[in-house]
Amino acid sequence: MTDERTAGVNRRNLLKLTAVAGVVAGAGLLPARSASAAGELSLKGKRIGISATGTDHFFDLQAYNAQIEEVKRLGGEPIAVDAGRNDGKLVSQLQTLIAQKPDAIVQLLGTLSVIDPWLKKAREADIPVLTIDVGSVNSLNNATSDNWGIGKDLALQLVSDIGGEGNIVVFNGFYGVTPCAIRYDQLVNVVKYFPKVQIIQPELRDVIPNTVQDAFTQITAILAKYPEKGSIKAIWSAWDIPQLGATQALTAAGRTEIKTYGVDGSPEVLQLVADPNSPAAADVAQQPAELGRVAIQNVARYLAGETLPRETYVPALLANKQTVGEVSKKLGIG
């Protein structure tokens, strides 16, 4: 009896103890794990090539600077180059970077057909290549937002906002850029099951540079072509700089019943989403700085002998009229 009791107490105590221990361990585990991971990771004595397609957008700049800082934090030496959105310069800088034989190269964005032959050459020169937001067979790991998720979330938000019917205007100028292609395909996939939603043909082509002015002009023209209210329900673009121009054009023309949708979480667009009177309805924000840090941490993991997954996904945050405040706070804007 006593034995049993003590045994029972013991068992109960033991249970309690393990529960407490579990909670303590659990509470301790998360910070401990990330601390140990960050502590283990090191790029000491390593030269890491950071090749950016451009740094003129919020997204690029955040990812670029975060990479440089992360390499320095892990004790490595960054060789950071920025092509200023010029493909010729991009190829030259990759070529020179390959010749410099760094311990790894991280490529940030870029048109796949332009950069892929050079990523291949880097691989042939035994330089590990990682990418951010470019899926390439020559990249060991691609740190990216889940563009399928982004495309789906944005498309569903759009379709639900317009009540599942109406004409939508689509900017599709960069189908050659993989993330844009995925987001566009997801829009088409969603729209397929809403037969009353029509994409107005021909689709518009967004351009670089002068993206905002160009989108403004194109939308102004299409508004003149569809003058009755309700004839256009929404405007979609694969990133949010055309969305910025489109939103401005809608406000200027007094057609604020039309809603605009985009991706990237540029601060100026998030501000518009936050404005209850603005036609900007939603913007899926990626976490560019986090993408940059994750890519560099992956470099360190790979150089330490770990095997990397094909893709590392960093969650994206959908900012609509309700959630925009929270998202902005998370991104450290405003």
């Binding site: 010729g88 057909s113 332009v114 032959p117």
Partner: peptide, 16 residues
């Protein structure tokens, strides 16, 4: 030469 260098034709030639 540019087509071979850039594996195709790209935009922004005017910047040259």
């Amino acid at each position: 030469l540019s087509v071979s260098y850039l594996s195709g034709s790209t935009t922004g030639a005017g910047e040259m």
